[in-house]
Design a protein around this nucleic acid. Structure first.
Lengths: 230, 230
DNA sequence: TGTACATCAGTGAACGCGCGTTCACTGATGTAC
DNA sequence: TGTACATCAGTGAACGCGCGTTCACTGATGTAC
């Protein structure tokens, strides 16, 4: 194995793209097999956490040998990178696009964020647990991703719009625009991640995604509405 | 090592309590050393997570040998149990007591919870990260603790008081009492756990514990107060 | 068309490493005389 | 008081195990003739 090709799989792919080979069995370049290994890795990662998942776990999930994983992806770190880039990142970026269209309509922005998180979680039930372990946990494997790729796009854009709306007197002046972004995540992604806990704690199987959405929007809209004359 | 004494340290302690020994060096029974090992374990647990912490890590942190940890605590599982019972549980139970006194004053209950979480986090900065990893994460080592010990006492008591107040028309009728408990945690413990993230994301070193508390109480009290005439 | 072979996708078995745990042993210390 | 010794707190070195990774090898397959 030479210095410029990290592993046989990559070397074979590079060869197919460039060199005019003459004889012999062609490279597999089987996207189905590669994709099924990525899916197996994602399943293991969201079930046990990235750090706690062994290559033997992933290999068993995908019904291949650990050596094949090394053959296709090089090492554990590069496999992680491929799962994140090809399977996880697209889900997060899909959240952003509908929100950009909200423009300076803060009510639409917030309702869109709450509904968007609900939609994403319904479509990808593995996401909240993975987000807790790999982004929220210190030392999580996806934390840098938040700062480098997701952070500047979504949270900072939304916080900036909140600040703008507040300057125009359209939002409760006692709130902090940055903390409002934190509160929004705490009222949407956190309850989704903690759902297995509070459903069991409160015997709350009756509360579906829509009930959570309505509760959250009511709290954001008017707050507790506590009776002030006892 | 016989069946009834899990390890030498426990055997020695049991012997001191019961048997009338005649000659020889007495058992150490040194609570300082034992406590310093528990503190070292807690430091490692909150820094790296319980599962990712090795006995060699804890031994190095406490400046002892791994064999001594086994001598005092038996095995890794029992050491975990001692750290949780003697170092972590007391911190959570200290949150409960002031809240019981609030009686049926829901405003005091909520303000007390928000302030109580702030106080606990200020006194024990290691707690939010540990809570995320060991309670919120699936497979976390302290999850059973929540269901068995903390859950019935704090969250269920508070949810019951919210339901009661709502029945009397003292709380926004569009909220769900159980989800309100979830929202409260999402607006307090979650922002504390995510503080390293949002402080760096928003360059928000200026937002201290008090600023977070005031923002949270303002959001809970009145919500966003969005201007409805555009 | 049929055959020999060059090529590489994929594998079985083993590597060194750090893990939790074990145990024969050391030496400090209180007791008995 | 001084001494011999019984006792146990604490240790160094090694155990088996699963980890990520490696590599010589196999055999299926397309190509050249």
């Amino acid at each position: 194995m030479d210095k410029n090709s990290a592993h046989p799989g990559q070397a074979a792919l590079a060869r197919k793209a460039a060199a005019p080979r003459k004889r012999g069995r062609p490279i597999a370049d089987s996207p189905d097999l590669r994709d099924s290994m990525l899916d197996a890795a994602l399943a293991c990662f969201s079930r046990k956490g990235i750090a706690a998942t062994s290559l033997r776990d992933i290999a068993a999930e995908a019904s291949v040998t650990p050596a094949l994983l090394h053959y296709y992806f090089g090492d554990k770190e590069q496999l992680q990178g491929q799962v994140i880039a090809q399977k996880i990142l697209p889900v997060f970026t899909a959240l952003r696009e509908p929100l950009v269209e909200a423009g300076d309509d803060v009510a639409a922005l917030i309702a869109g964020f709450v509904s968007g998180i609900g939609r994403i979680v319904a479509e990808h039930p593995w996401l909240p647990a993975l987000w807790v372990r790999e982004v929220l946990c210190e030392g999580g494997a996806m934390r840098d991703l938040l700062f480098d790729r997701l952070g500047p796009q979504l949270p900072q854009m939304m916080a900036a719009r909140f600040a703008e709306a507040q300057a125009k007197g359209r939002i409760n002046p006692d709130l902090d625009p940055r903390l409002l972004m934190v509160s929004l995540v705490g009222l949407t992604l956190f309850p989704a991640a903690g759902a297995p806990i509070w459903r069991r704690l409160f015997n709350a199987e009756d509360l579906d995604f829509d009930a959570v959405r309505l509760h959250t929007l009511a709290l954001l809209d008017r707050g507790l509405e506590l009776d002030r004359e006892p």
